[in-house]
Design a protein around this nucleic acid. Structure first.
Lengths: 253, 253
DNA sequence: TAATACAATTCCGAAAACAGGAAAACCGCC
DNA sequence: GGCGGTTTTCCTGTTTTCGGAATTGTATTA
């Protein structure tokens, strides 16, 4: 504890708070002015924060913004009930358009966690009730997130063995890498009988502030019926809803 | 950097992430097991995190959960636009009852930021349009938040010089501390010609999950007209609306 | 192109914080 | 009251931090 009653830790936090409060990225000098810290000090502290992904530096700029790891941590403070007002309206609209169950999934460690589900009138099959954890390699909403994580994250995920749920589940490393590539190029993740038998679902990433993919939307239906809807229709509608959610989560600055 | 490639900072973050990933609170022993840390080490690290509100201990339990400071950080990254529908409804009701402009302000670093404004029919004077930043010492909604922050926060705020806007603006440290005390005891913040000339406004805190004051409601009107409304009437109505908003923001679990 | 101003970075010794073994205190449970 | 485990205190060698001074980098202007 130094003269001002601060621990090293609390100064780190103050820097994060300062950056969070700013509308745009902040330079080292700006941070230093706000917190009354000398240039070398800010430089070192911000460097340490950046090294572990708590802060990030805007590409080709000197400005710092919050890092992916911090965003993840922050969003994990939201409880399941917190999402209702943020996102229910947007999901409801999707349900009305597609006639299938829609859910919002959140990246939580190495799994996708359903945080909100909206069902069409009359449906009673709970495909992905809030709280359910979905594997990143075998659920559409999971793939939609995994496909946009850092290479490092994907490597770590693939380093551990993955569960097989149906005969269609893709578990091989190369198989999954190819699948993720497909998600990135086509703009939509598909899960056809890979997790729950007889179920077809689509997933689309949702970006938060900083461009990180921390959420995804999933649409799930019985394969026999849902297959009738063209993939491109699903992609377009998911994409639109994702854009709205991104705005909600502060992705658009 | 120690043998395992960890800095002190990264161990703090690991602890936070471990706690975040757990569905329930974690005890020191559980954290230690997951991260392979000895008991005294976890004890000290968790203690430091708790000291600055990054971790919190469940009342009457040994389990640790994420602290409110992380929530504060999160809220400051949430999108400004489209603050929930219900919030708008609540503010609209206040406008109808009081006949004056109402806004919702959010604590953002060392300023209050208007994130939502609702005006009475026919009014065209934009007192506090969304995006406007209000000083914590010279706006009613600002005072309403400042009065309920930690002593540490207030000390840091008062350490820097404050701007004077009118001859009524209170800028002295003691003057402001007394004013904050008045807000706490009376339950309402008043700003009479202190920021904008000829304008009178009232502010009331809004608590989020964990009891932290991160938002406030402000009512603003021309002093000549608005002074006719008894303060107690304003306080009661603001208090009611604040309770509804608290529920909206997840203060009630 | 040189001159200027300021931001970012590197260096480094003194000072402070951290690490974790040992041991004591505390707790819930027979 | 005794027992097994968890939490807390104590303490010293080790590591990290702090920030002044000096250096390099980078726009902007003359």
């Amino acid at each position: 504890m130094n003269a001002r009653g601060e621990t090293p830790l609390s100064r780190y936090v103050q820097i994060l708070e300062t950056v969070a409060a700013a509308r745009t990225g902040l330079t080292l000098t700006e941070i230093g002015q706000q917190l009354d810290l000398r240039a070398p000090t800010v430089h070192r502290l911000a460097g340490s924060l950046k090294a572990i992904d708590l802060l990030a530096q805007i590409e080709g700029s000197k400005s710092y913004v919050l890092g992916r790891r911090l965003q993840l941590l922050l969003h994990s403070t939201l409880s399941l009930t917190d999402y209702s007002h943020l996102a229910k309206v947007i999901l409801r609209e999707l349900v009305d358009e597609l006639g299938e169950t829609v859910h919002l999934a959140r990246l939580n460690g190495a799994v996708a966690e359903s945080v909100l589900m909206v069902q069409p009138e009359g449906s009673n099959r709970a495909f992905v009730q809030p709280g359910r954890e979905l594997p990143l390699h075998a659920a559409a909403s999971g793939k939609a997130m995994l496909a946009f994580q850092s290479a490092d994250f994907v490597d770590r995920y693939l380093a551990k063995p993955r569960a097989r749920f149906t005969e269609n589940t893709k578990v091989g490393k190369d198989e999954i890498r190819a699948e993720l590539e497909r998600v990135r190029t086509s703009g939509i993740a598909v899960c056809d009988n890979e997790l729950d038998a007889g179920v077809l679902s689509y997933g689309h990433p949702v970006r938060v502030k900083g461009g990180y993919v921390l959420y995804s939307i999933g649409v799930t239906g019985l394969a026999d019926r849902f297959r009738a809807t063209p993939t491109e229709v699903v992609r377009a509608k998911l994409s639109h809803a994702a854009a709205l959610l991104s705005k909600e989560f502060g992705s658009v600055e």
